[in-house]
Amino acid sequence: MSQVLKNNHSALEFVYEFYLKMKKSKISLAYEGEITHQITKAFTALAESSMQREQDYTTVQKKVFHVMVECLQNVSKHAERDFNYYSSKDGRGIFLISKDEKEYNITTGNIIRNDKVESLRELLEKINSMTKEELTKLYKQQIREGRLSPKGGAGLGFIDIARKTGQKLIYSFLRIDDENSFFVLTSTIPRVKT
């Protein structure tokens, strides 16, 4: 790819197409790489100041902040490490924020092992099938009974996103090869006062 960008003509074509794609999808932030704690802090700070500028409701700002942190930490803690890169303390993946007048969409994409796909799919299906009351019950059960993983995950992230947004989680899995799949998750936060 770096070769593409070194050639004047193909660089222009590539960057302009990339630019148009981002514009068309109303993407306000796109990142691919390791999701470190510093990245999480930087992106949330960036989103906060942009939401303040646009005078989003405080409740919306808080929900976006919340969902961003949980999504970024999911990738940081659970994405399969890419062994082509040697600093692999944190998981890597793609992170996108898109927005229009009606809502914010927060999307993550990362590689996970095929043997983890089914249990993750089941968990997400279960969460999506639950009412607000059922989610609260599940949250309480998980916070009481769940143990913190060695990576510091409480098993509460998806439940919390579903509760805070009041929306279904949008997700899909793309099988890459015999070992890995690509997992995409989108959470939606309506820009309305709740």
């Binding site: 902040f65 919340h66 949980e70 916070i143 009481r144 913190l148 995950g153 409480a154 509460l156 992230g157």
Partner: peptide
């Protein structure tokens, strides 16, 4: 003001 889900477990 804010706490993430990992913190929520420790607050408990």
């Amino acid at each position: 003001e804010y706490f993430n889900t990992a913190s929520s477990k420790l607050l408990l």
